[in-house]
Design a protein around this nucleic acid. Sequence first.
DNA 1: GAATGCTTGTGAAAAAAGTCACAAATACGA
DNA 2: TCGTATTTGTGACTTTTTTCACAAGCATTC
Lengths: 205, 205
Amino acid sequence: MRRLSHYLRFLDEFESAGATTVSSDDLAGKGGMTSAQVRKDLSRFGSFGKRGLGYPVDELRDRLRKILGLDRRWRVCLVGAGRLGAALYQYEGFHRQGFDFVAVFDRDPAKIGRRWGSLQVEDVARLAKVVGERRIEMGVIVTPHESAQDVSDQLIEAGVEAILNFAPRKLVVPRGVTLRDVNLAIEMEGLSFALTHAGEIMTAG
Amino acid sequence: MRRLSHYLRFLDEFESAGATTVSSDDLAGKGGMTSAQVRKDLSRFGSFGKRGLGYPVDELRDRLRKILGLDRRWRVCLVGAGRLGAALYQYEGFHRQGFDFVAVFDRDPAKIGRRWGSLQVEDVARLAKVVGERRIEMGVIVTPHESAQDVSDQLIEAGVEAILNFAPRKLVVPRGVTLRDVNLAIEMEGLSFALTHAGEIMTAG
DNA sequence: GAATGCTTGTGAAAAAAGTCACAAATACGA
DNA sequence: TCGTATTTGTGACTTTTTTCACAAGCATTC
């Protein structure tokens, strides 16, 4: 349920605006969905609202954070110390939501040993060892596509059960491991597709 | 249809492997889908295959590129000359698929004027003018979230009809404008959600 | 304390997406 | 040239997702 994450952000906005309570209609308005959908989504995880009143902002936010697993911090490693890796490493949105980078790996000897904030780039050959030692739970793959499957295998072998992959290649992972892909070129192609077919009647886009 | 982009990539792989023809089952195998789904997706845009044989790799690739609007080049601007912007700018996957960055904007006087490859970072105040002059068709927003809606409005006002937004904020755009969001924190939350609920029976995840 | 005005939670209905299964079409070998 | 082995394209069916609609519940006013 990706929409839950959006609700969480909307709640932050409402809270900043001083609201103590929101209706499903308020939330739906922010995200271009229907109020029924918001209620269905939320009711899947319990009954949080008060009829006639709506949902208490702070309580719902806490509940959502818990449902999304954001009521704790997560130990994450980054594989690939390139430009995109650096951008993600510095992106404070991760830290704010509870994701801490506790290791950065690369294969390139020129990069190994460099300081990244409080960390030092480590040889990817040490991946299994470091993942175990630092109890790393998630991996972010930002390598060239040729290495991605290999890195993925190593992460999983070392015990990582959730992977966010930015390499433009479909990774094969065993059942039980959660994989999410972010493919920047494909996002862009979504735009060119839409512009190319603008005006046509499209059921799906 | 995001899957079309995936098929295109699978076709590249098959072509590299020397295949001249692929079956819907081959394509499905690469992406963990069913052959029926592949055929349904493709048949939406025409009849490309030969019964008993499959799809001719090179022809299907060309057709898909055309469907996705990748048989031409697109003029794109980047708004936000930060770390993530730099990473995207350098990402050659964009260029390979036909997307050319022809302008980079920022608000920060310290960044304005800096050389980025063959470009120079320009004042975002000049956005409307430059978008018109260089006939820019797409915008990529990589600003802090406070500026995102404002930048989006300016892009649209200047005639841009497709926006890729990396700022963690839901943008409001008029009908007719295509908007795509990439929210890095939300991708991460997908992982923490999955790990938190691992083992439970989840219909949707 | 009853009446009124909202808003939730949820079955039932509708729409969309995905799967099945098979006739039609093709290649290839005998 | 005929028979066999494939594989597409697609109608029918199933599953999932979304929307509709309304009874039940709460707050506030008179």
